[in-house]
């Protein structure tokens, strides 16, 4: 348990002190959201109807962008090799890193989402549903992302490969994430989407550390 907390603390400290990477990610998220009206036009009704999708896509892209720093710096400076020798299981390390990744790459985006909601003309209830669906759905994105980063960590030029591998697997998260906000099929459908989203997050959080640890162990051998 102390090893788990140690990994978590180390990752948090590194990403908050190391050159403002968290802020860059938040900035990316906001710019992607803010650039859409330039492509689509400033029609408030249209923007309001697609705003949940825009926020989800922006969060999705921002989280994929942050994947490369999950394991690669650790591998480059040898920390990953030390983790593998430690008596703590690799799955525990990955779980700590998934939580750290969520805290540094997802939570700041959710905190910044009111700004996007405002400029995209979202109304109050939709905004709160968006925050709730992001809170429920981003853990799954973090878990899948950690798996993708673990798969590609042994490849020297694997930076772009992880998003390509992970994006198809994340389709259900996007579907249920947006489905939980915009009740096209009525409120019943939205709340069932919310439940599916929570189930996806729980399942991927529980399984991905093991899969990622397996990939790291076998990729490094």
């Amino acid at each position: 348990m102390s090893g788990f907390l140690g990994v978590l603390r180390r990752d948090l400290r590194l990403s908050f002190s190391g050159g403002g990477e968290v802020l860059t990610l938040v900035l990316f998220f906001i710019i992607v959201g803010a650039i859409v009206p330039f492509a689509i036009g400033p029609d408030r009704a249209l923007l309001a109807s697609i705003a949940p999708g825009i926020i989800w896509i922006a969060a999705f892209l921002a989280m994929l962008l942050g994947l490369d720093r999950l394991f690669r710096p650790d591998r480059d400076d040898g920390t990953l090799a030390l983790y593998r020798m430690a008596d703590m299981s690799m799955a525990g390390v990955v779980a700590a890193k998934v939580i750290a990744h969520w805290l540094t790459a997802a939570l700041p985006l959710i905190l910044a989402s009111p700004f996007l909601a405002m400029i995209l003309a979202m109304d109050g209830p939709t905004f709160w549903r968006t925050v709730l669906s992001l809170l429920l759905g981003t853990p799954a994105l973090a878990a899948f992302g950690a798996f993708g980063a673990a798969i590609t960590v042994a490849i020297r030029r694997g930076g772009l490969l992880a998003p390509i591998l992970i994006a198809p697997l994340c389709v259900p998260v996007l579907i249920f994430g947006v489905g939980a906000i915009a009740p096209l099929g009525g409120p019943d459908q939205a709340s069932s989407a919310m439940l599916f989203l929570a189930a996806l997050s729980l399942m991927s959080l529980a399984l991905s550390p093991f899969a990622a640890a397996l990939a790291i162990d076998w990729g490094e051998e």
Binding site: A154, G179, W218
Partner: peptide
């Protein structure tokens, strides 16, 4: 081979979930 095998199996677990979610989504729209 070992890394691809892990990914293939994770994909195999995911494919039914993707199928289910896409069906849900397309009947909704």
């Amino acid at each position: 081979a070992r890394v691809v095998a892990v990914f293939t199996l994770v994909g195999a677990v995911n494919v039914p979930i993707i199928k289910f979610s896409v069906d849900w989504w397309s009947t909704l729209h």
